[in-house]
Computed example of a mutant assay.
Amino acid sequence: MVEYQQKEHYSINDLLDIVRLLRGEGGCPWDREQTHKSIKSDFIEETCEVIEAIDLEDADLLREELGDVLLQVVFHCRIEEETNSFTFDDVCDEICKKLIIRHPHVFGDVTANSTDQVLKNWDAIKMETKGQKRYTDTLTSVAKSLPALMRAQKVGKRAMRAGMDFRCAEDAIACIGNEKAELDAAVISGDKANIEEEIGDLLFSCVNAARLLGVDAELALKAATEKFIKRFSITEELVSAEGVDMKNLPIEELDIYWDKAKSIISKTEEQKK
C-alpha cells in the first residue's frame, strides 16, 4: 500500500506526485502498463467530454472534465519523465515562452489595436519560430488527426491568409453547385473512385462556404446530426403508436411521418419562444 497524506485541498503538485506514485513500484498495475499510444484515445474522449460540458453550460461538470484532461497531460508528461526526455515543468516552460513570444503587443513594444492585427502578428511569428518558409508549410502542418471537417476548415483559413480564397461567400456557395454537377456526372459514369473524389470536393466546398459565412462546419454538422436524431425519434414514436415497425414501411410512407415529426418539433420550438 502506498501512503499518501490526505488533504482537504490538493494542488497541481499533488497531482504530479499521485501520478508518479501510480506509475511507480507498488503503484497501480494498469497505470504502469500504459504508453502514449495505449491511452491516446482516452485523451480524445476526455476532450470531447469537456466540449459536452461547455455545450451543457454545466460549470460543475466542466470542472470535473477539465481535471480529467489535466490528468491526461500529467500522465503523458510522467511517461516522458521516466525516460529523462522532459517533465511537466518543461511543458509549462515551453508554453509560457510561446505565449510571451507570440504576444509582443502585450509583453513587448509591438502595437496591435485589433484582433486582426493580433492574428497577423501571431501567424508571422508562428511561421518564423516553426521555420516555415512557405505558406504551404502552414497548411501541411495542420494535424491530420483532426476531424476531417475541422481540418478542412483550418486549411481553408490558412490558405485565405495567403490570399488564396473566394472573393465572397456567394462565390463559395456557387462552387457548391459546380461540385454537385461534377458529382452527378461521376455518378452517371459509375466510376467509384471518381465519385469518392467528387463527394470530397463537394464537402470541401461546403466547408469553405461555411467558413466565409462565419459558421463552424464541425459544429454545424454536429447540430444537424442531433436534429436528425430528434426527428427520427419522433418519427419512430408516431409509427410505433400505430403498431407498425418502421422498417416495414416504404420510404414514401415514412416521409409522411417524417414531415409530421418536423411539424411537431416546429410547434414545440415556437411555443418555447
Score class of each variant (00 low, 15 high):
Val2Glu: 06
Tyr4Lys: 12
Glu8Ser: 05
Tyr10Ser: 09
Leu15Asn: 12
Val19His: 14
Glu25His: 03
Glu33Arg: 04
Glu45Trp: 11
Ile51Ser: 09
Glu52Gln: 11
Leu56Glu: 10
Arg63Met: 07
Arg63Ala: 01
Asp68Glu: 07
Leu71Pro: 03
Leu71Gly: 04
His76Cys: 14
Arg78Ser: 15
Ile79His: 07
Glu82Gly: 13
Phe88Leu: 11
Asp93Val: 12
Asn113Leu: 00
Asn113Val: 09
Asp116Cys: 04
Gln117Tyr: 02
Gln117Arg: 14
Val118His: 14
Ala124Trp: 01
Lys126Phe: 15
Met127Arg: 04
Glu128Gly: 00
Glu128Asn: 00
Glu128Asp: 05
Glu128Ala: 08
Thr129Leu: 15
Lys130Ala: 01
Lys130Cys: 08
Thr136Gly: 08
Leu139Gly: 00
Ala143Gly: 14
Ser145Tyr: 07
Leu146His: 13
Ala148Arg: 15
Leu149Met: 08
Met150Gly: 00
Gly156Val: 08
Lys157Asn: 07
Ala159Tyr: 12
Arg161Val: 06
Ala162Leu: 07
Gly163Phe: 04
Cys168Gly: 04
Cys175Asn: 08
Glu182Gln: 12
Val187Thr: 02
Asp191Lys: 06
Ile195Trp: 04
Glu197Phe: 07
Glu198Met: 13
Ile199His: 05
Ser205Asn: 11
Arg211Ser: 01
Gly214Pro: 05
Glu218Ile: 01
Leu221Thr: 08
Ala224Gly: 13
Lys227Gly: 06
Ser240Leu: 12
Ala241Gly: 14
Gly243Ser: 10
Val244Glu: 05
Lys247Ala: 03
Lys247Ser: 05
Glu252Ile: 04
Leu254Gln: 06
Asp259Val: 15
Thr268Ser: 11
Lys273Glu: 07
